[in-house]
């Protein structure tokens, strides 16, 4: 740490990770019991990720690319800790923020203000931190006039604006972004990108999942391509985009 030419610090370590989903065919005691007696299989297993390894250093901005169902979201959930790997290990340094699906904790019956507090707390902020940032959050979302009305009366774009705004203002070291840069209208999207570039500039680690090549090119310098749960490419983002097309 004190050496002059400090090597880049490791931020995310993914080592030989496997994630197996059991697709259960039974959903009640009765079904499970009958299948047991008949010695029928109660589940089939399916590897969503197979032996995936990579390292991401602090300050890097990496895109995860792959077609639908290739395992990108699963990978982000593993990094954020929502899911646990069935083999291998995952280490992260610092506070991980996952923009996996914004607005997951929003309750339609509560006002915008109440939702901001609730969600910021869910994402790990303390009361003091939220108080400090509340005005920024609302200003960023540009829905000041509606902040005290119930969220169920919001338009879907307004809802996403507020949700995104909360998520982006959480103080964190690693930001995981899954398919959410397409929220809102064009000006708001631009604003989000700008904010994310700002965070990259501050040296945050960023992992972005997006099907939008433009976004990926703009925000990331490295790309990891996943095909059916297997990592098939890891390198500069332009080459990764090529690898995705030619897989």
């Amino acid at each position: 740490m004190t050496t002059v030419t400090a090597p880049p610090k490791l931020s995310i370590l993914v080592e030989n990770v496997r994630k197996t989903f059991l697709l259960r065919h039974t959903h009640s005691f009765k079904e499970a019991f009958i299948s047991k007696i008949k010695k029928k299989q109660t589940s089939t297993s399916f590897d969503a990720l197979k032996d995936v390894s990579f390292e991401i250093n602090e300050g890097e901005s990496v895109a995860i690319l792959g077609y639908n169902g290739s395992g990108k979201s699963t990978l982000l959930k593993l990094i954020s800790g929502v899911l646990e790997p069935d083999a291998g290990r995952i280490r992260t340094r610092g506070r991980v923020g996952a923009l996996i699906e914004v607005g997951a904790g929003f309750h339609p019956e509560l006002s915008g203000r109440e939702n901001v507090y609730l969600n910021a707390a869910i994402l790990g902020m303390s009361k003091k931190e939220i108080d400090e940032r509340f005005d920024d959050i609302v200003a960023f979302s540009e829905i000041e006039d509606f902040i005290d009305s119930e969220v169920k009366h919001y338009s879907s774009g307004m809802f996403l604006r507020l949700a995104f705004s909360v998520a982006i203002h959480v103080r964190l070291d690693i930001l995981l972004v899954d398919e959410i840069l397409s929220v809102g209208d064009a000006p708001f999207r631009e604003k989000c990108r700008k904010k994310i570039r700002e965070l990259i500039g501050e040296g945050k680690t960023m992992v972005v999942v997006s099907h939008d090549v433009g976004t990926v090119r703009e925000l990331c310098d490295r790309g990891i391509v996943i095909k059916k749960g297997v990592k098939i490419f890891d390198g500069p983002v332009e080459e990764a985009i090529e690898a995705l097309k030619n897989q």
Partner: peptide, 9 residues
Amino acid sequence: KALVKKIYL
């Protein structure tokens, strides 16, 4: 459900 699935807490 929505929270359990998506956010670690």
